[in-house]
Design a protein around this nucleic acid. Structure first.
Lengths: 144, 144
DNA sequence: ATAATTCCTGTAGTCACTATAGGTTCAAGC
DNA sequence: GCTTGAACCTATAGTGACTACAGGAATTAT
């Protein structure tokens, strides 16, 4: 007598949304659940576990593709875990790069804002700063 | 006689792509340029300036909508610059939140990886960590 | 029994591009 | 002047990861 529950309950229990759950099913991340007599989805604890796995991985910034790989891996329990490790490691590199980049942006925005003269738009440093180059990394040159 | 140049030159000069330039025109961020006899776009320095403005703002993480607002603002030079300032300030808040969030993820991924036993998938801490809660902020409860 | 809520499918919309197809125009070399 | 290849044109579809809607059917609450 396994406890089953509706898609709405699964959504609130997991902190996600009904539409998101159906979406994960549609792209094959969540297995299709049983249906009741009225064609409504009935989920079990296994679905809940799989869903929280997906949600946690997504929260950590993994793509659905990476999640799919991890799920595939986890279904071959006797493989070496190097592959799963590798996925997490790549993700960590990525997160660190995003942090570094955002810190540059933060500094640039701070600089931009601190120089705001609170005059009119014509002398607004925010717009000026964006029109010029500042600490920009984009490799471009004015067309002379 | 104003120097004019093709979409390809504008792309390389600005460090963007031909398709992106046409896209910005299509959503009304870049004004429609003149065309030559053969219907090809001919750009001037003013287009280059506008484009770098857009690209810098996008690099800083502003949405195209925010860029649109800034452009609108810059066309009313006698308005107070408070509005432009406000847009940049909101963006700074946002950047700081993203940094804070990513740092949590970084710590979580580090924790996850440092405990990897390099055994088989069955005992892989990466997958285990994602299946459980850890430092997760998602407010959910298992369905008992 | 009726009303309100939840569920169903299918489709379209979002954001900010990117890619493709099928054609036209331009620029360089001969 | 001609040919060839690169660059350009429009229009449409695809991406990722959902979100929103329309129009119904089922369930739950009163």
């Amino acid at each position: 007598m396994e406890r089953v529950f509706s898609i709405g309950k699964l959504a609130t229990a997991s902190g996600s949304k009904v539409e998101t759950i159906r979406y994960y099913e549609s792209i094959g991340l969540l297995p299709e659940p049983e249906r009741n007599a009225g064609n409504q989805r009935r989920y079990t604890a296994r679905h809940y576990d799989r869903l929280t796995f997906i949600l946690h991985a997504r929260d950590l910034g993994l793509s659905t593709e990476a999640v799919r790989q991890l799920i595939d891996l986890s279904q071959h329990p006797d493989m070496p875990c190097r592959d799963a490790d590798e996925i997490a490691r790549r993700q960590l590199d990525d997160v660190r790069q995003r942090i570094a980049r955002l810190k540059l942006l933060e500094a640039e925005l701070e600089r931009t804002l601190s120089s705001c003269s609170h005059g009119t738009i014509a002398e607004c440093k925010v717009i000026e700063a964006l029109a010029q180059c500042g600490a920009c990394e984009r490799h471009h040159r004015p067309p002379r």
